[in-house]
């Protein structure tokens, strides 16, 4: 009897929880103070050159129950490329590379968000870079979420994707080792709803 009661209570609790817990998708704006868009490219096969984009904005929707409903939209100001070397940055902005006066923005818009494991996802979407739009797949891990000490609710992910420069028409010869660029994305959103 006691056992039955407990089970019923559990079932009831579960039913109540499920009834109300079908949460709405959560909307977040990127907190650019805690978000980073970094790249890593081989220097002749001898070492890694690491740089980042300093200026971008974006938002995402995260649906804890139906990850597939999640969406991301991020726009990067290409002029903000920063490789910690002013002359090189100027070169990266000119038409040998990003051609930022012609293509001032790069944009990623998600098409699909698939759960692949516990806190692991594949984020598919269209990346527009250097005037070329191509589908890319970003491997994403959920890092954490919760209330911050100042009353906001935050959620963060990190992701990696390898881009082939020539796919986007950026084919200045830096050697075979440097045909691909590894992107590392660490983003944190502040919940808006």
């Amino acid at each position: 009897m006691r056992h039955l009661l407990t089970s019923s209570a559990t079932a009831l609790a579960l039913a109540v929880t499920m009834g109300t817990a079908h949460a709405e998708p959560e909307h977040y704006n990127l907190d650019t103070e805690h978000s980073f868009i970094q790249f890593k490219i081989s220097h002749l096969g001898f070492s890694w050159l690491v740089g980042r984009f300093n200026d971008f904005e974006g938002d995402f929707t995260y649906d804890p129950d139906e990850p597939a409903n999640s969406e991301v939209d991020v726009t990067v100001q290409t002029r903000s490329i920063d490789s910690n070397h002013s002359e090189r940055d100027r070169h990266l902005r000119d038409d040998d590379f990003l051609d930022v006066s012609e293509y001032p923005e790069a944009r990623f818009v998600s098409t699909d968000f698939e759960r692949t494991g516990e806190g692991e996802y594949t984020l598919n979407g269209e990346l527009t870079l250097h005037g070329t739009t191509r589908p890319i797949s970003i491997d994403v891990s959920h890092v954490g979420a919760g209330e911050d000490p100042w009353g906001e609710y935050r959620r963060g992910f990190e992701g990696t994707v390898t881009l082939t420069r020539a796919d986007f028409g950026i084919d200045y010869d830096l050697g075979e080792e440097a045909e691909e660029v590894e992107m590392y994305l660490s983003v944190e959103g502040i919940r808006q709803d």
């Binding site: 300093n54 200026d55 002029r79 903000s80 920063d82 910690n84 070397h85 002013s86 002359e87 940055d89 100027r90 902005r93």
Partner: peptide, 29 residues
Amino acid sequence: LSTVDGRSIDVFGLFQVPSVYRAGDGFED
């Protein structure tokens, strides 16, 4: 253009002209 990232200019290995002004994004442009 050459020094806003904090680098100096080396003059034939004889002496360096230090950076006196550091600037953020895009000043070198």
